[in-house]
Simulated scan of single mutants.
Amino acid sequence: MTTTHSVHRAVLAFGSNVGERLESLQAAMDALVDAPGVQPLSISPVYETRPFGGPAGSAESKDLSGQDDYLNAVAVIGTDLTPQQLLIRTQAIEQALHRVRAERWAPRTIDVDIIVYDDLQMHDEELTVPHMRAHERPFVLRPWHDIEPEAVLPGRGPIAELLARLPDEGIEERSDLVLQW
């Protein structure tokens, strides 16, 4: 008897601004695909971005000017993991790479966020999909647009249109840095 697995499409965002940033991004991607249940599909160029914390002008906005710049990238994967299983995998990767969650928007060795999982829209205390702030983050939308220019963020619209509404400063493609599967 053969069992079939549903393959779901997920978009993940990776960021690091502590230590060997590129090595942390690569280690996170390696760990993601080294375990069963994940098939790499595409990976964006690497971007260097200024730290960003909370929606501008909101109570959550925070001055992060004292932090080092981030390296960011986006990956598209196929997976037979549920959203919750994928969250457990990403959190285990963060823990293995010494992510400390002492303070919101604090510097981090690695951050791995689930941006979308198919067209699913869900919100519970552990996971919100699509990511609740993806639509206002050029460091997510720009690399994602590079690999899927026609992509749509469920509930928000085409990422090209969302990206066009955001400021263009503070994010720079680093063609000298490359990530691989």
Results as ranks from 00 to 15, higher is better:
2 T>V: 15
8 H>N: 14
8 H>S: 12
9 R>V: 12
10 A>I: 10
11 V>W: 12
14 F>C: 01
14 F>H: 08
15 G>W: 02
15 G>C: 04
16 S>K: 07
17 N>S: 02
22 L>R: 04
24 S>Q: 13
24 S>M: 12
26 Q>Y: 10
28 A>L: 05
32 L>P: 11
34 D>P: 02
35 A>W: 09
37 G>C: 04
39 Q>K: 08
41 L>H: 11
41 L>A: 10
41 L>I: 15
41 L>P: 01
44 S>H: 04
44 S>M: 10
44 S>D: 03
45 P>H: 13
45 P>D: 13
46 V>C: 07
46 V>H: 04
46 V>T: 07
48 E>D: 01
48 E>I: 07
50 R>Y: 06
51 P>C: 00
52 F>D: 06
55 P>F: 13
55 P>M: 14
57 G>M: 04
60 E>R: 12
61 S>P: 00
61 S>T: 03
64 L>G: 00
65 S>M: 02
67 Q>R: 09
68 D>M: 03
68 D>G: 08
68 D>Y: 05
69 D>G: 07
72 N>F: 07
74 V>S: 04
76 V>F: 03
77 I>H: 04
77 I>F: 10
80 D>Q: 10
81 L>F: 04
81 L>V: 06
81 L>K: 02
84 Q>R: 12
86 L>C: 02
88 I>T: 14
91 Q>W: 01
91 Q>C: 02
93 I>R: 09
95 Q>H: 14
98 H>F: 09
101 R>V: 08
105 W>Y: 11
105 W>F: 13
107 P>D: 05
109 T>D: 00
110 I>R: 10
114 I>K: 04
115 I>G: 00
116 V>Q: 11
116 V>T: 15
118 D>E: 08
119 D>R: 12
119 D>Q: 15
120 L>P: 01
121 Q>T: 15
122 M>S: 11
123 H>G: 08
123 H>R: 14
124 D>N: 15
124 D>L: 10
127 L>I: 11
127 L>S: 04
130 P>F: 07
132 M>L: 12
132 M>K: 15
132 M>W: 12
133 R>I: 03
133 R>N: 10
135 H>R: 01
135 H>P: 00
135 H>C: 00
139 F>S: 09
140 V>Y: 08
143 P>A: 06
143 P>Q: 01
144 W>G: 05
144 W>M: 03
144 W>S: 08
146 D>M: 02
147 I>G: 02
147 I>M: 00
148 E>P: 02
150 E>P: 00
152 V>A: 01
153 L>Q: 01
155 G>N: 03
158 P>M: 04
160 A>E: 09
161 E>H: 12
162 L>A: 05
162 L>N: 05
162 L>K: 07
165 R>S: 14
167 P>S: 11
170 G>K: 07
170 G>S: 07
171 I>L: 15
172 E>I: 12
173 E>M: 14
174 R>M: 08
175 S>K: 12
175 S>A: 14
176 D>M: 04
176 D>I: 06
177 L>Y: 07
177 L>S: 05
179 L>M: 14
180 Q>C: 12
